[in-house]
Amino acid sequence: MIGRRKDLSAGILFIVIGALFVYGALGQELGTPIRMGPGFFPLILAGVLILLGALLFLQGLRQPSAEPMVVPWWGLVLILLAPTVFGLTVQGLGLLPAVALVVLISAFASSRMSAWLALLLTIGLTVFCILVFSVGLGLPIRLLGPWLSL
């Protein structure tokens, strides 16, 4: 269903996100118009988002279904994994291994990548990043983190 009628799906997505924000805003004080609380403005905006989502949904109902969409699932997983792994390792392992991991993981997202090329790219880009950021700019991030020094 998703992807066949884009407005319909977009409408549903906006309604869901709007509802989540309504839920969050209701947990906050609403305040008075003079001194609005933290929940006042978000609640109004979330309401507008739900309204717009509903309009999109209605518009989508009248659309013919579109062709199915292509999703690069393997690439999707790897591309989203790369920054996550960097975040998880940069403080523990240090900048050098974290950069290498980002490049290595994301390189395999492309079906055109071969193992050798990935390795070459990892080494090349890691060296380049270290030279630019650590040596050239003196970025205060440890190259090798505490997990590696025993």
Binding site: P83, F86, G87, V102
Partner: peptide, 22 residues
């Protein structure tokens, strides 16, 4: 694109040293 990801990761981390941003 691996290069884009690597530079972005370092750039984002360098602003606030906040892994959450990644």
């Amino acid at each position: 694109f691996p290069a884009i990801l690597a530079f972005s990761a370092i750039g984002i981390y360098s602003i606030n040293s906040n892994t959450f941003d990644l």
